[in-house]
């Protein structure tokens, strides 16, 4: 009994404190970020950089992070939805990877159990071959693919990732059955780049920022990027410029807790938008090759719905979901 009482007391104290602090001019008090990945990955960097920018922008008093990795972030999402109901200061980092995991594993708790706040940026992939490969362009790869789909070994991240889906979309566009592609999944970008450098796979794909140094140093040849137009300052042609009608990016954004009011949701979105104008955030965008694409409110909600359908279709095409 005593213990329960003290917990209640604590909540009351926090509530009083946050009212008092809110009047001091912070839009948000102590922001709690749930990060559905272990420290160091893309989700983690997104959350930590955004949190830092929010404090710098003066829209949050302090920031706390909780890492709960696994299953594409859906384990963290489940805990977030249960533990932070109605908390106006709680946010979770999400993105295409999490939508993919939801489509694939159909967990009991999905993004429908949280409140959409904002999309932040896109990250684009690049297709590369080792420097000594006879393949010179995407056209060469497609010719090889059409002749014998199994002979093109595509190396990239786990199945169901943006890497995998992009390969399936390319095959489909080229008139090759997407379930016939020979996709070799690696865990983590490091293992994939090693397999590409060592010539263990024919073509590799990964985020542009991860591959950039190998391209610059001449150890890999870039064939195509997955963005709609050329990346700023990079000569690598897009897929579309080579006649492949595929454009795909890996987006990331944030969701709020379930059960918050419309005003609280708007406050979160405003805070995120303010943070996205900070220098530390724009620096992070530049150093990671992230492309800003802020989208808030209902438009963001609609966008995520659209992503759900698109990813589901692609996964069906490669036979990953029925």
């Amino acid at each position: 009994m005593k213990i329960r009482f003290s917990v209640a007391l604590r909540h009351a104290a926090v509530a009083v404190a946050s009212v008092a602090l809110a009047s001091q001019g912070f839009a948000l008090d102590n922001v709690k970020f749930m990060i559905g990945a272990n420290p160091g990955g893309g989700f983690d960097q997104t959350g930590r950089n955004l949190g830092k920018a929010m404090v710098e922008a003066g829209v949050a008093k302090s920031v706390q992070y909780e890492n709960k990795g696994g299953a594409g972030g859906t384990i963290g999402l489940a805990q977030f939805a249960n533990a932070s109901k109605g908390d106006p200061n709680a946010m979770i980092v999400t993105g295409a990877v999490m939508v993919g995991a939801i489509v694939q594993n159909k967990p009991p708790v999905t993004l429908a159990n949280a409140t959409p706040v904002a999309r932040l940026f896109y990250e684009y992939n690049v297709f590369v071959v080792p420097a000594n490969s006879p393949l010179k362009s995407m056209k060469d790869v497609l010719e090889m693919l059409k002749k014998d789909p199994g002979s093109v070994k595509w190396g990239g991240g786990s199945r169901g990732s943006v890497d995998h889906i992009s390969v399936a979309m390319i095959a489909k566009d080229a008139g090759v059955d997407p379930s016939k592609i020979n996709y070799v999944p690696f865990q983590g970008g490091g293992e994939a780049s090693a397999a590409i450098l060592g010539g263990h796979v024919t073509v590799g794909t990964s985020g542009y920022s991860e591959m950039q140094q190998f391209i610059k140093s001449g150890k890999m040849r870039a064939l195509a990027v997955t963005s709609g137009s050329k990346l700023p300052g990079e000569p690598v042609p897009t897929l579309k410029e080579q006649g492949v009608n595929v454009e795909i990016g890996n987006w990331r954004g944030v969701y709020g807790a379930p059960g918050i009011t419309e005003a609280q949701r708007k406050a979160l979105a405003d805070a995120v938008v303010a943070a996205s104008k900070q220098k530390s955030w724009t620096d992070a965008l530049a150093s990671n090759d992230w492309f800003p694409a802020v989208l808030t409110g209902e438009e963001f909600a609609k966008f995520v719905d659209g992503e759900h359908k698109r990813i589901e279709e692609s996964m069906k095409a490669v036979g990953m979901v029925k």
Partner: peptide, 27 residues
Amino acid sequence: TLGIPTSATAAILIGAFQNYNIQPGPL
């Protein structure tokens, strides 16, 4: 030499390099 992490710790160390705009790897 390659900028390839072989463990979780190494992956995060690469992150530390990148925070200084230094890219571990061939260059």
